[in-house]
Design a protein around this nucleic acid. Structure first.
Lengths: 145, 145
DNA sequence: ATTATACCCTACTATTTTTGTCAACATTCA
DNA sequence: TGAATGTTGACAAAAATAGTAGGGTATAAT
């Protein structure tokens, strides 16, 4: 039950952009290099995030990408759902129209619902700002030692 | 981020066996039929569950499979981890030896850890007995109406 | 205007994972 | 013995994943 690289790389890239929030457009190759990702592949992810309204882009020389909203207004859930679709262990708890063969007596569905809900709670409660703060904390602790 | 059929089918099969707990060995074809699964495929899953000590098997005619422990002593987590491995969104929060490229400053890892932990909490708290009780409730409610 | 830079878009492909199938063999019960 | 059932391992089609490749378009600096 892993996330695909879309979600994993995408979150890394968004975090990196959050680090530069307010500093104007950041070129993709710099993001790709800093997070060690393929630039061509990252283009695809970034295009999706842009269409979803999480990123703005500026074309041309000195152009690049930037968060469309402040880091505190973008959740991990926003990012992962854009790139991966809903995060749930089974299709029957996502699509309302999906019908199990034995709907009447499907007890496993209750289990999948509880897993889905607990994931949602986590990813909707973490913002990019929270991640920046965490990073700050790590750096601070390191300096103390 | 779906579970594979291994985990989904496996839980269904284990639930079905829990329904028959205490009634001796149940042949696989009956389980396969009741839950509408491929018998051949189910064989593989059941073999894994047996090796893990969650099932006992009885060979020969009138043989079959049965839970190795009472339903209240088998959790959804036991079953899913046996069939799927650890349920986590990324490899870096499973394998202790796994090393991210940028371990020192990997903030995304904290996110994956929180997702993993919340999933663990759910699946380790639900037993087969709980599922039987839920099913009972559903049936009772239906009868009332 | 030219050139360098960077985003946009589509199609393609190699690899891996999933989801099984199939066949041969072992064991037990009647 | 023979039929029912479990055990094992090899094989394979299909789908999803994880990129690659490359041309097109827009912008800014010179």
């Amino acid at each position: 039950m892993r996330l695909s690289t879309r979600g994993r790389y995408g979150l890394k890239a968004m975090y990196q952009l959050a680090c530069y929030y307010g500093e104007g457009p950041i070129p993709l190759n710099s993001i790709a290099e800093e997070q060690d990702l393929s630039e061509n592949y990252l283009e695809q992810l970034v295009a999706t995030l842009r269409k979803e309204g999480l990123l703005n882009s500026v074309r041309g020389a000195q152009g690049g990408y930037m968060l469309a909203k402040p880091p505190e207004d973008i959740t991990v859930g926003n990012i992962l759902r854009t790139l991966e679709g809903d995060l749930a262990p089974a299709d029957c708890v996502i699509d309302e129209e999906y019908e199990c063969a034995k709907e009447e007596s499907c007890v496993t569905k209750l289990v999948w619902m509880r897993i889905r809900d607990s994931i949602d709670e986590v990813i909707d409660s973490i913002t990019l700002k929270d991640m920046l703060d965490e990073s700050e904390k790590i750096v601070t602790n390191k300096t103390k030692n």
